[in-house]
Every structure is written in C-alpha cells, then in structure tokens.
Simulated assay, not measured.
Amino acid sequence: MSNRVLFGFHAVTVRLKTSPQSVLEVHVDASRRDARMRGFVERAREAGAKLIDSDDERLGKIAGSPRHQGVVARVNPLALSHSLDEVLEGVEAANEDPPLVLVLDGVTDPHNLGACLRVCDGAGAHAVVAPKDHAVGLNATVAKVASGAAETVPYLMVTNLARSLNEMKERGLRIIGTSDDATQTLFDIDLTGPVALVLGAEGAGMRQLTRKTCDELISIPMAGAVESLNVSVAAAVCLYEARRQRIKA
C-alpha cells in the first residue's frame, strides 16, 4: 500500500489524533517556531511521530503545493469502505440514523470536494459518491481543505453514476436532486428516511441522465440577487437540513 501526503496544521493534526500509528514522518519548517508550530510539534511528539526539520523548498516539493503552512506528513492510507454496499451494510448494522449519502455530479475543483467532505463529516453523512470520469480524485489539496474529513468520510468513485443511483434505489434510498428550476424546495420534503442528495457542478448543474434518474427535484430558497450557491455551501445547507430533521424526529 503506497503512502500518501497530508499537509497543513488541521489535516495532519487530525491524523495524529485519530490514527497516529499511520503517520510515517512529519516534516516541519525549521525556521518557524511560533506558538502554533511549537504546540503542533509538542502534539506530534506526544503521538510518537518521527519529526524532520525541513526548509520551505523541500516542504513545497513534498506537498506539491506552497500552501503547506510549514507542516507536511507522509502517512499510510486509512482503510475506509471501498464500495457503496459496504457503506450501506455498515449503516444498517449500526442501527442508527438511516443512510445519508451525498452525490456530486461533475465537481472537479479539489477545494470544493474538500469542503464537501468536511461538511459531510460534520453533518453525519455516510459517504460521498462521484463519477470517475467527471470528478476530482482525493489528493493532498482535498485532504488539506477537508481538515481531516478525507480520513473519515468514504469517497466512492463509480464507473456509471446513473447505475449506482438505481442501485441506491434498490437499497431503499430516495434520490433527491437539486435544481434551480424545481417547483418544491428543500424545506418541503421529508429527509428523515434513507436519502441520497445529488448536487451538480456550478453552472452546468447535474447531467441530464443524472437528473432523469432522480426521484424528486428540489431547490434551495434564494431570497437575494444571487441565483445559486457554491456547491459546498449548497451541500452544507441540504445536509444540515437533513440533520435538523433527523434530530427533531
């Protein structure tokens, strides 16, 4: 199993907290000794991590980005569910909340994906599903933006999204798509049961086949001049409405 790279204080700190044994080494900026860095180094030492002093150039090369904040870690990947069946079977076995899945159709920006994963972790969604040919994969930028959620929320890339949506239907999930022209709104529907919420890319929205596969279409009420929300913000609004309803129920 090949190792991967995490960078930034949040992403590396979460990994040190949740799975310290998977951290192979942590590179830190040798010239940075402010309070935040000192606190991080202390936590890394307490977790038993191998610490390596590096300069900014080396950190940038390892991270593949200049936005590493002086912290880069090489880690072993964590074992998350590799299929939707595994996720849904795990949810059923836990006998807690009904399945809540976020489906992203055409989201290619790693910052948007990272933010969506972070929202999913906070709202209690069980997985994110995306097509292999119209989506960004997990990379170091996604992991940094996700602030640890890339390690806790399964991200499942499927060959045929419409087929996967139909398989979710067979497992009892309602497929609810978001569209600006939908006649009913997010607040008109019951989200307490098994649900897959489908969001498309900004501008283009869902692809036509994805739209046709949905059981229902909803819109997010917009009171101002702006016509739509960033996909990660829209995901947060939808998932937390589902969370609100489930807590209330």
Rank of each mutant, 00 (worst) to 15 (best):
A196C: 05
L239H: 07
Q69C: 11
T213Y: 00
I247P: 07
V198P: 04
R74V: 10
N112K: 00
T185V: 08
D121Q: 15
S232C: 06
I247R: 13
V12F: 08
L239S: 12
N3I: 08
A235L: 10
D56T: 14
Y155W: 09
S83L: 14
L186V: 12
V72D: 07
S65C: 09
L104A: 06
V119R: 03
R45I: 05
R67E: 12
R174H: 12
A234I: 08
P154W: 01
L197K: 03
L80Q: 11
T152W: 13
Q21E: 15
G114P: 02
V145Q: 14
L24E: 13
D97Y: 12
V198C: 05
Y155E: 15
S54Q: 00
D85W: 01
D188P: 00
Y240W: 12
K248P: 05
V145L: 11
G122Q: 10
V91F: 06
K17G: 13
D190S: 01
P131T: 13
A234E: 01
H68K: 06
E96L: 11
R36G: 05
T185F: 10
H111A: 10
P194Y: 08
M222Y: 04
L80K: 00
N3M: 12
E89G: 03
P98K: 10
E86W: 02
D180N: 15
P66W: 15
M168I: 14
K132R: 13
S147L: 12
A235P: 09
R43I: 13
A242C: 01
G172I: 11
K132M: 14
V153R: 12
N166L: 15
A63C: 00
L138V: 13
D55R: 01
P20L: 00
K144P: 09
H27L: 12
H126D: 11
L104I: 03
L88D: 00
A49N: 06
L59S: 02
D180G: 14
L191W: 02
V101P: 06
L161D: 14
E167R: 12
L138T: 08
K144H: 08
L16E: 03
I62L: 13
R246T: 02
L156R: 02
G224Y: 01
D190H: 04
T192H: 01
A150T: 07
I247A: 14
I175C: 06
V23N: 03
G224W: 04
E42R: 15
V119C: 08
S83Q: 04
R15C: 06
M1N: 15
R67Y: 13
I189K: 12
E25S: 04
E202N: 01
N76V: 13
L78G: 11
V226M: 06
S54L: 02
P99T: 15
G205T: 12
V91C: 05
P99D: 00
P77E: 14
P20I: 02
A249F: 10
A73C: 08
G205K: 01
L209P: 03
S2D: 11
T185S: 13
S65D: 07
R33N: 06
H126M: 07
L78C: 10
A93H: 09
S19N: 14
L51D: 03
S232H: 09
L78D: 09
N76M: 15
L186D: 08
V26F: 03
H111I: 04
